[in-house]
């Protein structure tokens, strides 16, 4: 019986929620197809990460501890994961559909000669799976041909898994480096004291209605902080340079599904809705009563955001007292 391997994404010794979600999705797959769920931690000095990974509900954690895979570059990571999958008897490999997962997964599929499905939201008992297309306007039920499969899963579509603690095994696999590898130079990380956008239970997003980057800081940020919410943005706001790219919610940015999503000055193009319409409660604040965002919002407030948002911020703060 074939096992299911899960790629453990991690950074700064921390496992994001996305990894726990990928484990949970893999366990669901293993329920349908059989086999064990094995979590692979690749990196340099991964002892602590592996210990944390052991509590995510997988049957086993395996590690490849080597500087060559420290930056999770797609080329060396894909080739090394292929070797790991062979070593642990896995014909299916699961990733979270994050930027890292989506960088590596297709490369691994080509290396393994496996069929691939990206951004999967559901597994069916008959082995087929469901994924969105056309910015979530339609959903396709797909069948992957052959035994080998590479799958990335939408992080809002599955619950995070946890478990009592699984055995950790260090594999004696050397990273497989390609002849002409990419080289990591640097990373400029967005620093924020707010919750991580993809993990937050509350998100406040701003659009072009905010008019400039300064208003994200002076108008939107106080509401985020009053609610303990993460900050997001529409593509229009990111393209206009108001905020960094990693705040983008939508078809080509991040997919979020918080308990409360407040869209401020966002018209609600289908590309934005694709990234937030699974939120539990959606609030829209927009001065244009005809804006499409009101068609998905549970509660809509037609108002000038520059008056409504500060008022809302003050009143939310007053509630907390």
């Amino acid at each position: 019986m074939s096992n299911v391997l899960v790629y453990a994404e991690h950074a700064h010794g921390h496992l994001p929620k996305a990894t726990a979600v990928a484990v949970s999705a893999a366990k669901k797959l293993a329920t349908i197809g059989g086999g064990q769920t094995i979590l692979a931690v690749l990196g340099s000095g991964v002892g602590d990460v592996a210990a944390a990974a052991a509590r995510l509900g997988a049957d086993k954690v395996v590690t490849v501890d080597n500087a060559a895979v420290a930056h999770a570059l797609a080329d060396v990571t894909a080739l090394t994961l292929k070797a790991v999958a062979e070593a642990v008897g896995a014909s299916t490999v699961v990733f979270a559909a994050t930027s890292k997962g989506r960088d590596i997964a297709p490369r691994l599929a080509a290396a393994m000669d496996a069929a691939i499905a990206s951004d999967v939201t559901e597994f069916n008992p008959d082995g087929t799976m469901v994924r969105p297309m056309n910015a979530g306007s339609v959903f396709a039920t797909v069948e992957l041909v052959g035994e080998k499969k590479v799958i990335s899963v939408r992080t809002t579509a599955f619950d995070a898994a946890s478990g009592p603690g699984a055995p950790v095994e260090a594999l004696s696999i050397a990273p497989v480096t390609p002849a002409k590898p990419a080289r990591f130079v640097s990373i400029e990380e967005t620093k924020s004291d707010r919750p991580v956008l993809t993990e937050a239970s509350r998100v406040v997003s701003g659009g072009r209605g905010l008019k400039n980057g300064e208003n994200f800081t002076t108008v939107l940020a106080p509401l985020c902080d009053a609610l303990g919410a993460a900050m997001g943005a529409s593509r229009a706001a990111v393209d206009a340079g108001y905020v960094p790219n990693d705040l983008q919610v939508g078809q080509t940015g991040k997919v979020v599904a918080p308990t409360l999503y407040i869209a401020v000055g966002i018209s609600g193009a289908i590309q934005h809705l694709a990234g937030m319409k699974d939120s539990k409660v959606i609030v829209a604040i927009n001065k244009d009563a005809e804006a499409p965002i009101f068609q998905v919002a549970d509660y809509g407030l037609v108002a000038d955001l520059f008056a409504a948002v500060p008022e809302l911020t003050d009143k939310v703060k007053a509630l907390a007292k």
């Binding site: 959903f139 396709a140 039920t141 069948e143 992957l144 919002a297 509660y299 809509g300 407030l301 809302l312």
Partner: peptide, 26 residues
């Protein structure tokens, strides 16, 4: 290798309602 067996519409999300003020929203 990836066969599309069928295509379906997404689960519909129905529009909610408008509120008149920040107080009502809260």
């Amino acid at each position: 290798r990836t066969l599309i067996k069928k295509v379906t519409p997404p689960a519909a999300r129905t529009a909610g309602r408008k509120v008149a003020s920040v107080d009502e929203l809260i």
